[in-house]
Nucleic acid binder design. Structure first.
Length: 649
RNA sequence: GGGCCCGUGGUCUAGUUUGGAUUAGGACGCUGGCCUGCGGAGCCGGAGGUCCUGGGUUCAAAUCCCAGCGGGCCCGCCA
């Protein structure tokens, strides 16, 4: 017999036993919901119920007395996976598994299901779009943004594993002032061939151009403010100017040639900002000249992104260009429909969306987790010059996605929570309540640097490429020191998956809602609690199986009675439940944490007990089955978070 | 000013949604052991804690509620 969820079978049996016992003992009493918890130690069994504390009040008995009665009643029933039931502590009912039977079920299930073990299929399989990464094509992906692809890719992987049809989408944000700025600089340089990696090259042009334009803009604003004698305003602007001037000095030192050339060229324009705005408007209108230049820049950036993401084996099914939604009138049509609702109004020359009124009229605040007295800020849909804003265009894009999938998960940093809320309310306003409910904002917290704040517009960031380079280099040094006998090619290969495994693990391991402070120490960890540690443990398990060179013919599972063996058994049996928990709550970190804990236990086992030379042979066979099952689960867990499980390293 | 997120030994982190066991799990760092054993990227041991604070609910609170405090983010005709 095998099961997709061995621990679930045990849990089910415990529940049935407890229900029957309660029913026969207290046929008339209304029972609290039966939930189980994990005892603090295996001495107290594998599952426990604290129902007696609650029942004691209702029935006027002591919890422990009740627990004893219930345990006795349960014990008179027939068991299959349950081994024994007892009352303990102040009133717990503890359920122990029958180790022999449970080990057989668990290890045989893991080994037979193999690469499918743990991945319990969803009851309803859906079409799901996961939009993630979507870094603007202006500069390289930096380490602050790298949490996004790693989380997004893992979410896509776990959803696929439970049978959903998942499509990963990258939203190319090529519309807007920022892309116009970089294209402007690129044009000023005479459309140069990139030196080095194209996204890095474009990133430098962007930062420098943006900086020069900002300085010009601030100088003009200060002149204006001085004329009207707004002293506070002047001070504020001067502080901003100071900051940009120091950024300019940094950039000039780092990239003197590029900086000076851009400065000379931009100075020729009377009003660079006006040229940029013009370019932006021409692009939205789909004029050929603007299209050629902006697409050229964006494509170069994306080429760099594909290379970086390819290194970490993250790929996309669809690249959705924001401009397409503008040019093909999706945005215009959506705006027209929004205008017909009572929630859009003009203010000055701009068009505003009253998100708060929608929430109030449809009574959505409680469902959205908002207080009634919280007033949701309105959203500007259209600028005075007639161009649209990012969130406006995102409404059209979201509708497009929701027409193609039953559920859409947007992996976007939590700093965009308000915009995502306004977007959702726009869908409600348009009458797409069901679609709005199928739109999920998967919000994750920021990655920060200990010294200063990363700011891509200011050119202050550590690129993802650099982090990957460092990690692979460190891994190369490690592998060279540990295994000098390997060929150069083998060392390079191992260094690659070890270094990248370390980085991915570090980014996926932490609860997405918690902030992460980036340190090299965190990412370049190859010891306990790291990707490489789990990879190493997997390789160790493979090594035992390789040396044994036999399949376990007649394992006697009840001989696996050492505490560490029972702990590993329990963990392997629970992998399917951990996976389901990770899927339902979109918490990929649970799988990383689980894999690390299983690796810990496996290493303890490895060190304490012999496998191949264990006697009698039936015990050796049972341990071999355990090792094989652990190997399978470690591999499955690593693969579902996108980390390679090597046989050797 | 308003909203959201986070707060757990020196540092990092699990547990908080669904409250439970005299001992709040891990890791790093510190420290003492284990290299003739199936891979030492390992194993075994030790020291180190106001679970941010104060109230409340409960037989039981790191977990739930209220009020604060600290840090981050957002409240733009940026994305």
């Amino acid at each position: 017999m095998i099961s997709a969820n061995p621990f679930g079978e045990f849990r089910k049996e415990c529940k049935e036993l407890l229900e029957k016992a309660l029913d026969s003992l207290f046929p008339k009493a209304s029972m609290p919901k039966i939930v189980f918890e994990f005892p603090p130690s295996l001495e107290f069994g594998e599952l426990a119920s604290s129902i007696c504390f609650e029942l004691a009040k209702k029935l006027g008995e002591r919890p422990l007395e009740l627990a004893k009665k219930i345990a006795d009643a349960v014990s008179s029933k027939e068991f299959t996976l349950v081994g024994s039931v007892e009352a303990a502590g102040a009133g717990y009912i503890n359920f122990h598994v029958n180790h022999g039977k449970f080990a057989e079920l668990t290890f045989e299930s893991a080994r037979k299901l193999n690469s499918d073990y743990g991945f319990v299929q969803a009851e309803v399989q859906r079409k799901i779009i996961v939009e993630h990464t979507s870094v603007n094509p202006l500069h390289p992906i930096h380490i602050g943004q790298a949490r996004n692809p790693v989380l997004g890719d893992t979410i896509a992987r776990i959803l696929r594993k439970c049978g959903h049809t998942v499509s990963t989408h990258y939203y190319v944000d090529d519309v807007g002032r920022q892309t116009a700025i970089v294209a402007y600089g690129y044009q000023k340089l005479g459309k140069p061939q990139p030196k080095g990696k194209p996204d890095h090259f474009i990133g430098n042009i962007y930062t420098i151009t943006n900086c020069i334009i900002e300085i010009e803009r601030l100088k003009k604003e200060i002149e204006n403010a001085e004329e009207t004698r707004l002293n506070e305003e002047v001070e504020r602007l001067k502080r901003q100017l100071d900051e940009w001037t120091s950024i300019a000095a940094e950039l000039k030192e780092k990239y003197p040639e590029l900086f000076n050339k851009l400065l000379d060229e931009i100075k020729r324009d009377e009003d660079p900002e006006h040229v940029v705005n013009e370019l932006n408007r021409n692009y939205e209108e789909g004029r050929e000249k603007a299209k050629t230049i902006i697409r050229e820049v964006a494509e170069q950036c994306l080429e760099g992104f594909r290379e970086t993401l390819g290194r970490v084996e993250i790929f996309f099914d669809s690249w959705d260009w924001e401009s397409e939604f503008v040019w093909r009138s999706h945005v215009k049509k959506t705006l027209e429909k929004l205008r017909e609702t009572p929630y859009v109004f003009e203010s000055g020359n701009v068009l505003e969306f009253d998100a708060d009124k929608v929430a109030k009229d449809l009574n959505l605040k409680p469902a959205l987790g908002l207080r009634e007295d919280y007033e949701i800020p309105s959203l500007t849909l259209v600028r005075a010059d007639g161009t649209t804003l990012y969130t406006t265009r995102d409404v059209a894009y979201s509708l497009w996605k929701l027409e193609r999938a039953e559920k859409v998960i947007n992996v976007i940093g939590m700093e965009q929570s308000l915009a995502q809320l306004q977007l959702k309310l726009a869908l409600y306003a348009l009458g797409y309540a069901e679609k709005a409910e199928n739109l999920v904002h998967f919000a994750y917290n920021l990655v920060t640097l200990p010294g200063y704040k990363m700011a891509s517009r200011k050119g202050r960031y550590i690129t993802f490429d650099r982090v990957l380079d460092e990690a692979v280099e460190r891994a190369y040094q490690e592998v060279s020191a540990r295994s000098p006998q390997l060929s150069e090619e083998e060392k390079r290969e191992i260094a690659r998956f070890v270094g990248i495994g370390a980085v991915k693990y570090a980014l996926v391991e932490v609860d997405p809602s918690k902030p992460v402070v980036f340190t090299w120490e965190r990412v370049l960890n190859f010891e306990r609690n790291s990707g490489p540690y789990i990879q190493y443990t997997h390789a160790r398990a493979c090594s035992i199986l390789r040396k044994a060179a036999r399949t376990p013919e007649k394992p006697e599972y009840k001989l696996l009675n050492q505490p560490i063996e029972r702990e590993i058994l329990l963990m392997i049996s629970r992998f399917p439940e951990i996976f389901m928990d990770a899927v339902e709550n979109l918490k990929p970190n649970l799988i990383a944490e689980y894999a690390n804990l299983l690796a810990d236990k496996f290493n303890t086992f490895y060190n304490a007990l012999p496998v191949i030379r264990a006697r009698p042979p039936e015990l050796s066979d049972a341990r071999l089955a355990l090792v094989d099952a652990a190997r399978i689960v470690l591999r499955n867990a690593l693969e579902v978070i996108g980390i390679k499980a090597p046989r050797k390293m």
